[in-house]
Structure formats: structure tokens, C-alpha cells
Design a protein around this nucleic acid. Structure first.
Lengths: 226, 226
DNA sequence: CATCCCTAAAGAACACTGTTCGTTAGTAAC
DNA sequence: GTTACTAACGAACAGTGTTCTTTAGGGATG
């Protein structure tokens, strides 16, 4: 019998410690994720935070990946989408994607999870529905809208992850890489040599470049004839 | 003093075992990566494959991430770009990106690395220069070309990673997720309900959907006026 | 009320992981 | 022949996810 199909209720509801539950575990995990990033959200650390052993968690959660996916759902709860039905469709589309992006940036652990796990919660469905609606209003139909939403979400997710990953192992290397681009042989790599500045620009004003990407994809999606 | 700035030559070049070197370590690691994926490329397993202890590797490599980045460079060596200067620019652009995509799909461990590490080798510079050239021929200029290349590469990398990540924890869940989409409340989620098929289509004929994405981005980039 | 059973919780162990530290031993230069 | 250097090694540290076994609390039964 699978965990997910059974309602588990702790019978011990008075003994000093708050009884375990998936809700409580997920909440605790998310707290740790916010404070210490992905490294802080290990089974053992979550268990310790709940003053118990790691094996106890496996009653409510199948494994770490399973827990991660619940945490992602939980984190998505903090996502607030612009009022649907109000304002131009494009503003709503951008607003939703930007809100999602900012959430992933704020809690960088989430970007890590979202890349390897598909959220299974209602909130994610809401987001997709919201985007589909906006795209539909914008004139995209069937396949273009569906694939377009996937494309846009992949863009948001991976951009957030990339940003996080660069931040992680130091802003130290960034200038070094840029330097190596600048020093690239102008004969073999003329474009790289002259476009180094552009390749690395937009790092300060993150949103500019992010929105440029959205704009690019949107135009492409809208032009699609499917 | 840093490892990377010093040429290390093993003095012991006759004793039964082939002397260690960064080259040899990277080659062995890549072999393991091909056979067993990312899980097979741990410091300890690479060391064991070389019949030595893990600490020995740290003479030639600063840490696992460092090794990973070398492995990525090494793997990129197998990338063959279409003859430059021949054929229409768009075909060359698509050819290069598709070749890169297929390489990442073939050796899925590489996609994992490429998302969190920026390759520092010449081969990567070649790829970027190649793409910049093609885009330039296609009419994109300065910022659009530079940012466009980044966008296209991010797309290739993250798509490959996503595909790999879905394959990893089973094709088991995929139909289940699709089912949950189909069963979504038609009142709250009308678009999801009617577009489920489209959202999950293109999974069999991977290349169709992949190329659709390229096309979308390309149109958007070309339309950009910068 | 006392017994039985189910199962959440806990403990301990397994098989790993990356990385660091102190030591050894082989080679090249003096 | 001695000294200096350093690649290679062994062992240990501090962690990881997961599983298996045991314990003990509470609901249902007799």
C-alpha cells in the first residue's frame, strides 16, 4: 500500500512534542530551506529540527525527492498572481511569470527543486491555467499556447537556477570568466572578443535581461501558426 | 599557489601503474560518467578506477566541481559543428544547437554539469563564436546576438536536463501526472482540461518539439531591434 | 477491565559521500 | 651522499539517504 493513498493520523496527540504529520514536516523543511538553502534541507536536519530521528519521517514521506516536491508545492503557496481578468493580457502574463521568478530567486532552494521535480499541487495548476488563459487572449492557440507555457516556465525556472548557481560558488569566478573571454584570440574568436561586454551585461539590472527573454519568446510564440 | 597555474609532472613514471595526471583523471571520470551517469562519477569511484585513494586526486583537481567542469570540457571534445561558412546560416545555427543537444542527451551526466558549471575550455568558445557568427549573418546585432546565444544555450541545456531528469525517476510518474491533469476540475481549469493532450505531446518525437522551441526563440531574437 | 493488535516512533546500522590532515617514499638537484 | 621537494597514500572526520528491527502508545475487541 502506498503512503499517498492513505490518510495517516498520529494517535499520540498530547505527549510534550507536537505529533508528526506531513504538514508539519513539510513546513519545517521549508523553514530550513529558507534559512540555509538546499543544504539545510536534508532528511537528518529536518528530523533533528523536529527533535526526532530520520527514520521517523519515512512514515509520512517516501523519500527526499518526495519531500522536496511537497516543499515546492508548499512554497508555491506564497505566489500571488495578478488579478485575472483585469488589465491587458500581456501585463498579466508578465506579472505572473515575474512573480514566479522572484519567488524562486528569493528562496533559491526552490529553483533547484523545480528543475528536477514537477510540482503536483493545485497552486501549480492555477499558475498554468493562468498562463494558458493569458496566452489564449493574446491570440496563441492550442499547441502554441500549451508548448508556449512549458517554454516560458522552463525559461523562468532555469534562469532562476542559473542565477542561484552562479551566486553559490562565488561572484569570484564571474569576473575571471569574463576576463578569459576578453582575452580570447581575436583572430579565432572575433565576435566573442568584441561582444564580451554584451554577453555579460544585464547582470546588474537582472530584470531587464529577464524581461527581454520573455519578450523574445512571446513574439516567437505569437507568430507561430498552429 | 593555485593548482591551475602550475604544471604538475609526475616524477614516478615507471612503477607498474600509469602515473596520475589531470588528463588521465578526467578521462577516467568521463568514462565512468558515460557508463553509470553522474552517480558513477564520485571522487572515490574515480580514484578506485585508477586504483588509488580519493586524496590522491586532489593534487590535480581542487574539488569535485572542478573535476566536473574539466569533464564537461572533455566531453565537449566530441561535439562536431557543421562546416562553417557553408549552407544557410539558419541551418548551421540549428545544426550546431542540435548537435550540442544530442551530445547532452547521449551523455546525460553532462547536462547536469552544464547547468551548474560554465565550461572554460576552447571548445565552448568555439561553440559560442559559431553561434554568434550564424546569428550575425541572420541579421541580429550586438546585444540581441549576445543575449540570444545565451538564451539559446540555456534552452538547450535545460531541455536536455529536464528530459534526463524525467527519465531518471521513471517514466512511471509521467502518465500519472498526465492523468491528474486530465482529471483537473474543468470549471476551475478549463484550459488545462482541454489542452492536456497538447501539453504532453511531442514527447515521442522529441526533436519536433525541441526544434519548435528553437524556431520560436529565433523569430523573437531576429525581431529584436537592438 | 484486561488483552490483543496495529502502527507511529525511535534506534541502530549500512553503504555511501566530499574533503582534510599527517605521513611515507621516490626522485632530482646539490 | 645528503637534502629538499612533493606525488601518493592511509586514515579519519563529518556528513548523507535509506532500511531494518525494535519499542511502546492507543483503539478496538473480548
Amino acid at each position: 500500500m502506498k503512503n499517498s493513498e492513505r490518510i495517516i493520523v498520529s494517535r499520540r496527540d498530547r505527549p510534550a512534542k507536537e505529533p508528526l504529520s506531513r504538514e508539519l514536516i513539510v513546513k519545517t523543511a521549508y523553514e530550513l530551506l529558507k534559512e540555509q538553502g538546499m543544504a539545510g534541507m536534508s532528511m537528518r536536519k529536518v528530523a533533528k529540527a523536529l527533535d526526532t530521528g530520520p527514520s521517523s519521517l519515512y512514515v509520512y514521506v517516501n523519500n527526499l525527492e518526495d519531500l522536496s516536491s511537497y516543499v515546492l508545492d508548499y512554497g508555491l503557496g506564497e505566489l500571488v498572481l495578478p488579478d485575472s481578468g483585469k488589465g491587458p493580457w500581456k501585463e498579466r502574463l508578465f506579472g505572473a511569470l515575474t512573480a514566479y521568478f522572484l519567488l524562486l530567486i528569493e528562496q533559491p532552494g526552490l529553483s533547484e527543486i523545480s528543475l528536477s521535480t514537477m510540482p503536483r499541487g493545485d497552486k501549480y495548476l492555477e499558475l498554468i491555467e493562468y498562463l494558458l488563459t493569458a496566452l489564449h487572449e493574446g491570440g496563441a492557440k492550442s499547441t502554441a499556447a500549451a508548448w508556449g507555457v512549458d517554454l516560458l516556465l522552463l525559461y523562468v525556472t532555469s534562469t532562476a537556477f542559473e542565477k542561484h548557481s552562479w551566486r553559490k560558488h562565488g561572484t569570484v569566478e564571474m569576473p575571471a570568466i569574463k576576463e578569459s573571454f576578453k582575452k580570447a584570440d581575436p583572430v579565432r574568436f572575433p565576435f566573442i572578443h568584441s561582444l564580451t561586454e554584451e554577453l555579460f551585461s544585464g547582470g546588474e539590472v537582472v530584470m531587464d535581461r529577464f524581461q527581454w527573454g520573455l519578450e523574445v519568446m512571446l513574439q516567437g510564440i505569437k507568430l507561430d501558426k498552429n
